[in-house]
Structure formats: C-alpha cells, structure tokens
Amino acid sequence: NLRWTSEAKTKLKNIPFFARSQAKARIEQLARQAEQDIVTPELVEQARLEFG
C-alpha cells in the first residue's frame, strides 16, 4: 500500500474534484512504476502535467 506525504495530499486537493479520483489512480500508478512506496509532490505534479 502506498503512503502519501502531507505535501502530496495537499497538491491532490488542488486538483478539481471531478478529476481527482482519476488523477489519484494515475499518481499511484506512476509511483508503482517508479517502484516507490511513498507518493511525493513531484509525482502529483507529474500527473497534473499529463492531465493538462
């Protein structure tokens, strides 16, 4: 299971509600691909840039 830093959680809250669950799934996918067990603000930002 993935842990989220408080900064990453804050960044996730800045994503519009309607896109948040999809973004969260993508962020967690990116973390797993990078073999990380902690979601960082950088991963959230990477996903945000993908979504535009």
Rank of each mutant, 00 (worst) to 15 (best):
N1W: 09
R26V: 07
E45T: 05
A23Q: 05
A31K: 01
D37Q: 12
N14D: 15
L30R: 04
D37W: 15
L2I: 13
E35H: 15
A34V: 07
Q46H: 07
E28L: 04
A19Q: 14
T40P: 02
L2N: 01
L49Q: 10
Q36R: 11
E50V: 07
L30P: 00
K13R: 12
T10D: 14
E28Y: 03
K11V: 10
I27G: 02
A8Q: 01
K13T: 07
G52Q: 15
T40D: 02
R26I: 10
R20W: 05
E7I: 06
R20D: 02
L49S: 09
E35R: 14
N14W: 09
L2F: 06
S21Q: 12
L49N: 10
F51R: 04
D37E: 11
E28N: 03
Q36D: 05
P41V: 14
E35F: 14
A25F: 12
L49D: 06
T5C: 03
E28C: 04
T10H: 13
F17A: 12
Q36N: 06
P16I: 04
P16R: 04
A19F: 15
L43P: 00
A19P: 03
R48L: 09
F51V: 07
V44R: 00
Q22E: 12
Q22F: 12
A47V: 15
E35G: 15
L49A: 10
A34Q: 14
L30N: 02
T40S: 05
I38V: 14
E42K: 05
T10E: 15
L30F: 09
T40A: 02
A19R: 13
A47F: 15
F18L: 09
V39D: 00
Q29H: 09
Q29G: 07
R3Q: 11
I27L: 02
A47K: 01
L12V: 03
G52K: 12
K9E: 13
R48F: 15
Q33M: 13
A34K: 13
Q36S: 13
R26A: 07
I15L: 07
P41I: 14
F17G: 09
F17N: 07
T5R: 02
S21A: 15
R26D: 04
L43W: 04
I15N: 01
D37A: 11
K9S: 08
L2T: 03
L49T: 08
F18S: 10
K13L: 11
F51A: 07
L12R: 01
N1A: 11
L49Y: 08
Q36K: 13
Q36I: 14
A19G: 07
F17P: 11
R3W: 08
V39R: 00
I38H: 07
N1E: 14
E42G: 05
N1M: 13
E7A: 11
Q29W: 10
F17R: 12
Q36W: 10
R48Y: 14
R3F: 15
L43G: 01
G52S: 15
I38K: 05
S21M: 11
A34L: 15
Q33T: 09
Q22D: 09
W4M: 00
N1H: 13
A19T: 08
P41M: 09
L2R: 02
Q29V: 08
W4T: 00
T5D: 05
Q36M: 15
R3H: 09
K9P: 00
N14A: 11
L12F: 14
F51S: 06
A8I: 01
A23L: 15
Q33E: 14
A34C: 08
R48S: 11
R26S: 04
A23Y: 11
R20Y: 04
R26K: 09
E28S: 02
K11Y: 11
D37F: 14
Q33I: 12
L43K: 02
W4R: 00
R26M: 09
S6W: 11
